[in-house]
């Protein structure tokens, strides 16, 4: 095979296989850890999260209660394990809905073009003109807060962004000669979208899904923190922070550990995506 004069090209061509660096691997490990907790958490929780374990409140860390007790005397460790399920579960469901919808619509708009593209883009851009937390507030004010409402609202907030991103990528791929060749061959739109375009935007779309997951966790936690997200007796990590906000002045572990849980998840996802090989992340 020939060598290339431009050393930059050489580097990108020589780059086969997906090597992650250390930071990326650490991020991935934390993500997998929280994923497992969300699935298997209930199996290892020492106390039922709804049970008052002791009449002490806001106690510090002890051998009995690894993360202390909260404002009612619940075992914080058990509640953080339970919170993982809500935070990770709701965010995953929303991000999946948002990205699936956005990517499908985006690819269709890019290939179809014309009036369909124009109207859809205008409309969804208008939704982008509403700040996300506000969107959530208004929706919750309107229909009340329940888990399906939260999932749908969060998905609706982030679908326009996902659409815009996927459409931009698909428009780029759509101008490539191989798509023109397929079109000149007589291929129809579904083939163009599924076989020619989708495989070539998959990497960046997955990276974008990760970033959007972080945003959704942030808004979900924000809503719960305002008391408008996951409702008692259930609680996600944002709700745990809200419950225990009185413990703030005491520096109680009941408020610190849910904070650490949120931060560790979101920072890990961001670090993981930031350190993905450019081959996957490349957005052009």
């Amino acid at each position: 095979m020939k060598t290339l004069s431009n050393p930059l090209l050489l580097i990108s061509h020589a780059h086969h296989g997906y090597a992650f660096n250390k930071v990326g691997r650490a991020g991935l490990a934390v993500i997998i850890f929280w994923g497992l907790i969300a699935i298997f958490g209930p199996l290892i929780e020492p106390y039922p999260p709804g049970q008052i374990a002791s009449y002490d409140i806001f106690t510090p860390v002890s051998a009995e209660h690894w993360m202390g007790l909260d404002y009612l005397g619940h075992d914080v460790f058990s509640r953080v394990l339970m919170g993982a399920r809500y935070t990770v579960g709701i965010a995953l469901a929303s991000v999946f809905l948002a990205c699936t919808g956005g990517v499908i619509l985006g690819m269709i708009a890019a290939v179809a073009g014309g009036l369909f593209d124009m109207i859809l883009s205008r409309l969804l851009d208008a939704f982008n003109g509403i700040p996300s937390l506000l969107f959530g507030l208004v929706a919750v004010a309107a229909v009340g807060s329940s888990i399906p409402v939260l999932v749908l609202t969060l998905a609706a907030i982030y679908l326009p962004g996902s659409y815009r991103f996927a459409r931009a990528l698909a428009v780029n791929v759509n101008t490539m000669d191989f798509v023109t060749v397929a079109r000149a061959r007589g291929e129809k739109t579904p083939y163009l979208i599924l076989r020619e375009i989708f495989p070539n935007i998959l990497g960046p779309v997955l990276a974008d899904l990760g970033l959007r997951f972080v945003f959704i966790v942030l808004v979900l936690s924000g809503l719960s923190f305002l008391g408008l997200g996951v409702q008692p007796p259930n609680a996600d990590w944002g709700a745990l922070v809200r419950e225990n906000v009185e413990g703030l002045s005491l520096g109680a572990p009941a408020i610190i550990f849910p904070c650490i849980a949120i931060a560790s998840l979101t920072i890990s996802v961001n670090l993981f995506i930031d350190n993905l090989p450019t081959k996957i992340r490349d957005r052009s």
């Binding site: 490539m176 000669d177 191989f178 060749v181 000149a184 061959r185 007589g186 076989r195 495989p199 070539n200």
Partner: peptide
């Protein structure tokens, strides 16, 4: 228009582009 041409007519004429890099789907 391309869409109105018959498959058989399309088959008879093929087009090959300048940049081989962008003319082949990198994912296939």
């Amino acid at each position: 228009e391309l869409a109105k041409r018959r498959k058989e007519d399309l088959r008879q004429t093929q087009i090959v582009f300048q940049l081989a890099d962008t003319a082949l789907n990198p994912a296939q």
